[in-house]
Design a protein around this nucleic acid. Structure first.
Lengths: 241, 241
DNA sequence: GGACCGGCTGAACACTTGTTTAGTCTGTTG
DNA sequence: CAACAGACTAAACAAGTGTTCAGCCGGTCC
């Protein structure tokens, strides 16, 4: 490895004071949210509040600089962990690496606040899930969908949203330890999730077909058996492909 | 109807200034979040900031009073709309009634901020979904689950979380109009959701059974066929019960 | 009538926020 | 060496926050 940094994809920081401030800000924002005062960040960086403004112009500009940095970090991290991530598990994999804690903390805070980083983050997760799903459908592991893009988007929004909500509903003792928190979340929600993914929820195609009829789409989908059949289709059959 | 209020279950307000302040606070909190200043609320209520503190003691106490009020409102509204809500659709039903807008706005803000109201709100939605799911399973509309409680909790967290995240990712033009926002959300996410509910996502029981084995639970569940069978169970069969 | 009391207010207080200003130090450049 | 430039700071500023204080006003009680 040429740089001191390992395989986390973290953009390099020369030792410059400016970078030290930015790093401290990213850490603080991740830890305490974007409401953190300039004075706190300055203290973290061992520097006067005035210098923060001197280097970045304003707090908003500092925020933007942090966003930029984290964004670059995200794309690099994704590239680095392309092969390693066992398909759609991008988040779980990253949660296990301590070096990613600030990145994920910052991402979570952004997801709660909205904004560009949030959108970019879910976009990356969507793209990741897209290639995984495509492969899995081709391999016969995952059923095809009537609208692959919509499904992937829904699945990402759903898993991230569930995690986020469950984090704010009962905040963990140590919000820093992202790995532990994701693990705790999974032990709680994995069974119902995987069960839903395995057997679905409804016994008949009724609601789906009704909706397809309602939106004017002929219910001869790509995903499942072609004929809706009146009244109570026996089961979610699926000879895929 | 004995009171002036219709069937929204909203707790009555005598015309007292104290109640007027509380009402204004609930509205403003719902509209602009809990960061809203005492001065703004006072202005909304047509009153001096000092009077707000005079009546409630502090801003935090005012916040608590609003929480109490909204909480009482929620349980009353649920009671009122018991029969009307077509099963697990509690949120959609309420979103269509304008009078509930402040309640739902306040609930959303609380879900983003955490706290008691948030927990109580999802708890009520869980209980509502529980009775619906029980009936639906009995009627053969919904498949049984290995852990009904966990499933219901997951489903509620998932739908609320998805809605919340999608609201913060691209904030609607008019955050006030809860009905329109929920409708927009549904037209985007209903198809993938109902498809997942109908046919599931995975083609085999593999992952589910592996997990059941991993946690030491014998995979002879209530939900599906009793025998795991080595290698590739053909399909998500389900003669329930 | 006079005293009291609670609703109510304008003004101020104490504090925190982001930002500015004036100025010091350090190193580089002519 | 003088001069300039940029990193850096202490102190102050302006605005916003929640809260307090002294006092006014209108009604009720002795």
């Amino acid at each position: 490895m040429p740089e001191g940094t390992s395989s986390t994809g973290r953009p390099p920081s020369d030792g410059s004071t400016r970078d030290r401030i930015r790093d401290a800000a990213v850490l603080r924002f991740a830890r305490s949210g974007f409401g953190t005062s300039v004075r706190t960040i300055a203290a973290d960086a061992g520097v006067s509040p005035a210098l923060v403004i001197h280097h970045f112009g304003s707090k908003d500009a500092l925020h933007r600089a942090c966003d930029d940095f984290v964004l670059r970090w995200i794309v690099a991290a994704k590239r680095q962990n392309m092969g390693r991530a066992a398909g759609g598990q991008l988040l779980q994999v990253m949660a296990e690496v301590d070096e990613f804690a600030p990145l994920l903390g910052y991402a979570v805070r952004s997801l709660q606040a909205g904004g560009e980083v949030a959108r970019a983050f879910v976009q990356h997760m969507i793209e990741d899930a897209q290639v995984y799903t495509r492969e899995a459908v081709a391999d016969g592991i995952v059923k095809p969908s009537l609208d692959e893009d919509a499904r992937v988007r829904y699945l990402v929004l759903s898993s991230l949203g569930t995690l986020l909500l469950s984090l704010t509903l009962d905040p963990p003792d140590d919000p820093e330890d992202f790995g532990a928190n994701v693990r705790a979340f999974m032990t709680e929600q994995y069974l119902p999730m995987i069960e839903l993914f395995t057997q679905g929820f409804l016994t008949s195609r009724r609601m789906l077909d009704d909706y397809l009829l309602y939106v004017g789409d002929p219910p001869s989908g790509t995903g499942t058996d072609p004929e809706p059949d009146p009244e109570h289709v026996p089961e979610t059959t699926s000879e895929e492909r």
